[in-house]
Nucleic acid binder design. Structure first.
Lengths: 208, 208
DNA sequence: GCCGCGATTAACAATGCTGTTAAATAAACA
DNA sequence: TGTTTATTTAACAGCATTGTTAATCGCGGC
């Protein structure tokens, strides 16, 4: 019974690396957290790098999956966008630090960009491509303003990710306590959806 | 001639802490970078904590200043917003890692929130308050849709900050090389301004 | 029972990191 | 000049961290 040693190390490593990042995480802390001697960590994974790489790839795959699922739904256009933004937001409720974790590590070590290139970019590219088709069709029908899908995706991801990254600060600023965390986030989610839809359905506000 | 030992340690510490964060930064690396023995670091600043606190406060003050200046301008409403978003963006061109640095450190160590509470929040609160008055006035005149200033500021800061945090990834995604970095950023800046103005001048797209 | 083998442990090595200290040097000043 | 004070250096202490290794344990197959 209980999970295997290897798995418990993996779990602990995920938690530790996500909290601290590669450079600040300690293998001793991971071993302690997993409840095993740190020699076991080296027995199963040989090096810190090695262990990290496996965690990193797993997380990049998870991130790619979330993007794929969030914007893969069906339904009428506006409702589809609303659901997509919301689904992405909800994914972040469960994985609040994941995007910044990935961003940080590819800045710290350009070598890790290979993993991103292999796993994340194809999915991202496909999603953006599909959305672009959709936007083109809808704008041809006069339902929305013409936009590039990439900018819209960046807008969505920016606001969603930053909502979690800045949560402690935002709560302070809004004068809310920890207890109002969930409510604040739900309100923020609606704001972000409104902001995204506003850009798509905007009548004036051009650069004229 | 040349700058003082103390100053060169400070400069090196700023660079090192901004790149790595408190936990991953090493005082030995800071000393090496400053071109002094690491004993000097302890002579002038006694502890790593101490040195970090001074750097951190300085950076929080810089951040507060940038917010204050960006949205303190005059002029007609729409133009004022346009300039404000742009000014904030341009500040980030010079200090691309500053916001995430501050966010990270207040997550890692809640004790550092005191500094933020003292320095950043008052400025932030004042700016949001001023903008709220402005929005109320303009929406009463029918020039813009009614909005809360906090949500607009969060939208702006989200997109601006994330533009820099995600730059390596965005460039990969857009298929651009390092050489097109500056051009990509300028284009992104215009997109963000459009996105913000769209929300303010939006006619439809409500939650109905 | 015992053999083989993966899993586990404890101890160790090497290096790195933060911080201290005593002595040497330079600067200020009377 | 001599005296005092600030700065700098080199060496060291103590502990943490990554990684290795040899011995031991436990367990299924024969």
């Amino acid at each position: 019974m209980g999970i295997s040693t290897e798995q418990s190390i993996m779990d602990a490593a995920e938690a530790e690396f996500m909290e601290k990042g590669f450079a600040a995480a300690k293998t001793t802390a991971i071993a302690r957290r997993a409840g095993v001697t740190h020699a076991m960590l080296h027995y199963y994974f040989r090096t810190k790098e090695n262990l990290f790489d496996q965690v990193f790839r797993k997380k990049v795959e998870l991130l790619a999956d979330s993007i794929d699922k969030a914007f893969g739904g069906e339904g009428a256009f506006i409702e589809k966008m609303r659901l997509g933004v919301g689904a992405h937001f909800d994914f972040l409720v469960e994985n609040p630090r994941l995007p910044l974790f990935v961003l940080r590590e590819i800045v710290d070590d350009p070598e890790r960009r290979e993993t991103v290139q292999e796993v994340l970019l194809p999915v991202f590219g496909r999603v953006v491509g599909r959305l672009q088709e959709l936007f083109d069709r809808e704008s041809a029908r006069g339902n929305i303003v013409p936009v590039t899908a990439l900018e819209i995706v960046l807008n969505i991801v920016s606001m969603n990710v930053f909502a979690f990254a800045s949560l402690p600060l935002s709560l302070m600023l809004a004068g809310k306590g920890e207890g109002e965390r969930a409510a604040f986030l739900q309100a923020r989610k609606e704001q972000i959806i409104e902001q995204v839809l506003a850009r798509l359905t905007n009548a004036k506000g051009g650069a004229s």
